[in-house]
Design a protein around this nucleic acid. Structure first.
Lengths: 225, 225
DNA sequence: CGCTTAATGCAACAGGGATCGCGTTAATAT
DNA sequence: ATATTAACGCGATCCCTGTTGCATTAAGCG
């Protein structure tokens, strides 16, 4: 699953280089914002030779996968005692990381690589996360709560967060709450979803919210008639 | 909005070349399946020189945008008399085009271009479609039906279709019906969503359905523990 | 400490994407 | 029909991504 298979000599120098490269990646993603990240840039900024990076990680997606799994996604899944609580903190966390340059970059890199020429890039941490999420659901079910299927959770809460974050901008915690609320309503079947936070028409929505989705990031004016 | 600005000499030869290139793109997308599309390939397959293609369209995303807007998205929005009917046929159509190589390719190309270096690729036809969708909703509301907000429709029905289609496989008409049904349930507030079609756990879901989402396209075996 | 060899540095090179200058063709206007 | 010039074809060329062979460094091990 990891980009660096069990190394035979992971000690001092290799570890140092690994750290240098990782840090360079994070630096670049932080400074350059959303610009493209090339291996040449990483090589120069870290002082590690290109060839080394190509040999160890192969490609930018592979390197990003390593960075993400080894540094960013180490926080354990929430366990607040209620499914709603778990989902809300988890969704907020996902939204935050997907909205950041690192997360957005990673998702786009891995997903774009996914359908490309044969070499089906492993979905890496996505599978791990899936298992952890399932454990979270299982806990809730064991407590006696009504729980959604995984695909429901994925479609109703996670996919919108991913989509917003990748294409437009990070979604705020208020909206993640709305998504979680929607999921729970669906599972429990209560009264219809309130429409307070929603623009009435597409035009309003598009113009007011900046961008295609009503999120709150500035995005050079693009009105329509 | 269009990739080719109002040409000063759009007649005979230019039009012929434009058609040749468009047809080559469609041919390649049909035959090569999901493989990468390069301008070199298009040039060879169409008999038009690379330099010409670069000059007129600039890049693959630009060319795809032109192809899509001028050839593929000309079918009018459905008007069946009920919101559910409209949504179901529309969703099925979207799923089909997004699942096809052309649609998938286009979406992924725009995705790549969207947040990349400055040149904010226009979302092109997406805005047009948004307005048409809104008109569909307006018609339904005028008939007295309870209608969702645009963002709800977008998040609950369209985004999942896009996401599935772009990164995994096309969703079948059965699942699009599920999505539409979900939306209408949310707006009208009825009993909880049935869970028949959903795998029980993430592992089941992942292994059985092939790929991360339970869709029905073969995808080289990738089991997990 | 000394030996083995994994891992890195270095430079040269292949390959492809994209651009440019210039000659040629043909669309448009008169 | 003729002139004008937009648009195309062609080849050379640049630049960037990624690879490879070989020398050098240092990690792991006795």
């Amino acid at each position: 699953m990891n980009a660096t298979p069990p190394a035979k000599r992971p000690g001092g120098r290799s570890a140092r280089i690994r750290d240098d490269v990782h840090e360079a990646v994070l630096d670049l993603l932080h400074s350059d914002g959303w610009g493209e990240i090339t291996i040449a840039m990483i090589a120069e900024h870290s002082g590690v030779h290109q060839a080394t990076i190509y040999r160890r990680w192969g490609s930018v997606p592979g390197l990003l996968d390593d960075v993400v799994t080894s540094r960013l996604l180490t926080t354990p899944m929430p366990d607040t005692g209620t499914l709603r609580g778990d989902l809300e903190t988890f969704a907020a966390r996902v939204a935050e990381s997907v909205g950041s340059p690192v997360g957005s970059m990673y998702l786009r890199a891995t997903l774009l690589a996914s359908k490309n020429a044969g070499e089906a890039h492993e979905y890496g941490f996505l599978v791990d996360r899936g298992l952890e999420i399932q454990a979270m659901l299982d806990r809730a079910e064991k407590r006696g709560e009504r729980v959604p299927r995984f695909l429901q959770l994925f479609e109703i809460v996670l996919i919108p967060i991913y989509f917003h974050g990748m294409f437009f901008a990070a979604v705020g915690p208020d909206h993640t709450k709305t998504l979680v609320d929607r999921l729970i309503r669906i599972v429990e079947g209560v009264e219809p979803e309130p429409m307070d936070g929603y623009s009435r028409t597409f035009a309003e929505h598009f113009n007011a919210g900046n961008g295609y989705l009503g999120s709150d990031k500035d995005q050079s004016s693009r009105k329509m008639s």
